[in-house]
Computed example of a mutant assay.
Amino acid sequence: MDDGAAITGQDGQQGAAWHYDGRSATRHAVRVAPTGEGFTLSGDGVFSGPHRWSDIAALDGTRGRSVYGLNGLAGWRLIFEGPPPEAFAVHLPLPARYGRWVDRFGLTRAAIGFTAIAAGFVALVLSAPSWIAPFVPRSVENRLGDAMIGDFGGRFCRTAAGRTALDRLATHLGAEAAGVRSVEVANIPMVNAVAMPGGRIMIFDGLLKQAKSADEVAGVLAHEIGHVRHRDTMAALIRQLGLSMVLGGLDGNVGALVSGALSLSYGRDAERAADVYAIDALRTAAISPDPIAAFFDRLGGGKGGEKLERATGWISSHPVSADRKAAFQNSKQRGKTYGPALSDADWAAIRGMCRADPKGAKASGFSW
């Protein structure tokens, strides 16, 4: 076989290299000679090849050596002291630094590609749930919500008078048509209310204690009904893989339940849409939007708080409180007669549910 001309290295020697055949530990001094699409190795008592350039893999070397292996034959090695001869190196793959296809395209191009793919994935994760959620059967969402909430660690407060008044208010705000299955008061000292899967809404006792009037609570409740109407909670669960919340909520840890409930982030568009629903519901029910506007003013901390909210608004899932306040204020209709959301007796019954319910009062202790 004609091996052709031997490859000459930078030192003028003909392709001097070391070779291990993969079958024994003997090191052979060999010369490298091209054969068109590959090369052969020859030396005293050894001949190897022809080998195709495409079958050679660059390996990590030590002490400046260049080491190559042969695909399909473990232990086969070709070693040059220092860099390989240029005429040999032009045919060989570069050492894999980041991975085959990254090395093939280059680190910069690969990084740009990774960034584009990641951005596309993030966009899909953020947008897909909003159009997937409506296709989730209501029965599935209802079971999920029931499993997540249960009796909320025994912290639901229920009295006959309070239950009747709360149901009357929810019905007045279009809860049934929106798909709301229940509205509960939970003995949790937080100024908040949340919409959970399956049309379940919870109003925390802390909100009832801090509210200035039933009209404020009506505005907050209407907002949560809007989330149920738009199935925002189901979209949030899809986005956050909410099954982990279900598992966390089944261990009886109320702190974990509340944390899970409050971690549902709907995004600014969903929050604005829920506010629009609340504005329409209050208008239909002839409840003044001024009290809920005042609530948002207190929530935002006035003008000083508005500056901070606008400065940090890019990390918030809610619109700026001042903008929400303005939206409700601007919805007030001139000449329209507004009435109270509840009678004084009904409002007192709802506010006093957790004090009047022995079970709820017993569960008043709360810790994270």
Rank of each mutant, 00 (worst) to 15 (best):
A5I: 09
A6E: 10
Q10V: 12
Q14H: 15
Q14V: 08
G22F: 04
A25C: 00
R27H: 07
P34G: 10
P34H: 08
G38A: 12
G38Y: 04
G61L: 11
G64S: 13
R65F: 14
S66C: 08
S66K: 01
Y68L: 05
N71E: 10
G72Y: 13
F80Y: 14
G82I: 07
E86K: 13
P93H: 07
P95K: 10
P95Q: 07
R97P: 08
W101V: 14
D103M: 07
D103T: 06
G106T: 07
R109F: 09
A111R: 14
A111M: 15
A116L: 12
S130V: 14
W131P: 10
I132V: 13
A133H: 05
V136I: 15
R138T: 12
V140E: 02
L144N: 07
D146M: 09
M148R: 09
G150I: 03
F152V: 09
C157H: 05
C157Q: 14
T164Y: 10
L166E: 05
R168N: 04
A175I: 05
A175V: 06
R181I: 06
V183T: 03
E184I: 05
V194H: 05
A195I: 05
G199T: 09
I201P: 04
I203N: 07
I203R: 12
I203A: 02
G206A: 07
S213T: 08
S213W: 03
E224C: 03
H227E: 02
V228P: 04
I238H: 06
Q240K: 10
L241P: 03
V246I: 14
G249Y: 01
G249V: 11
L250M: 15
G260T: 08
S265R: 14
R268C: 09
A270Q: 04
V276F: 15
I279N: 03
I279W: 03
A281S: 14
A285Q: 09
S288P: 09
D290P: 00
P291Y: 00
E309P: 03
R310E: 11
A311S: 11
G313C: 10
S316T: 13
P319F: 00
V320E: 01
S321M: 12
A322E: 00
D323P: 01
A326I: 04
N330H: 12
Y338H: 11
Y338N: 07
A348S: 15
R355N: 12
D357F: 00
D357P: 03
G360V: 08
S364Q: 15
F366C: 06
